[in-house]
């Protein structure tokens, strides 16, 4: 199953989802398609005005283009997802996920879609937290495989 992860660039979540037999929907794949596309419309990163327009599907025209541009890339991942794993309070959302408003909107989109969702928190220097983190994700993904209902489903 396709699992949306948040932060969409997370190494740990991406690896765990793949390790437990699902397909992670990650930002890196979207970026790869964009930057390795043969036709370079708008170097260096190939972000065109079309991308910002695509964001209009998700947010109003007076929303800052940074939010709309991000949504144009990340929101289609949520639309294609069968489930989602969200890390709450990920305090280092730098780079392409460094926009707090976009992050709020993405969480809202996941909730609105009503797909099975697991919300966890990164472990903080604590073995128990780490176990809880990994086992929660493992159980959630195992239940998904077995077709059990869970999360907000």
């Amino acid at each position: 199953m396709k699992v949306f992860i948040f932060p969409p660039t997370s190494l740990i979540l991406s690896d765990l989802v793949e390790r437990f037999g699902h397909e992670p929907l990650v930002m890196m794949r979207v970026i790869r398609d964009k930057v390795t596309d043969l036709s370079l419309d708008s170097p260096p990163l190939n972000v065109t005005p079309e991308d910002v327009k695509a964001g209009l599907k998700y947010a109003a025209v007076d929303t800052p283009p940074g939010v709309r541009g991000r949504l144009a890339l990340i929101a289609p991942l949520i639309e294609n997802a069968d489930a989602a794993i969200i890390v709450r309070n990920a305090d280092y959302s730098f780079g392409c996920v460094g926009c707090a408003r976009t992050n709020e909107y993405l969480r809202y989109m996941v909730k609105r879609r009503g797909i099975p969702t697991l919300e966890v928190e990164y472990p903080k220097e604590n073995e128990e937290d780490a176990k809880n983190f990994v086992y929660s994700i493992e159980k959630f993904l195992r239940d998904l495989k077995e077709g059990k209902k869970n999360g907000r489903d």
Partner: peptide, 16 residues
């Protein structure tokens, strides 16, 4: 930066 932060957690995740 994010990678660096997550790398610090990897020993705990590996152990789990």
């Amino acid at each position: 930066y994010q990678l660096e932060r997550e790398i610090k957690m990897l020993p705990l995740i590996e152990d789990s």
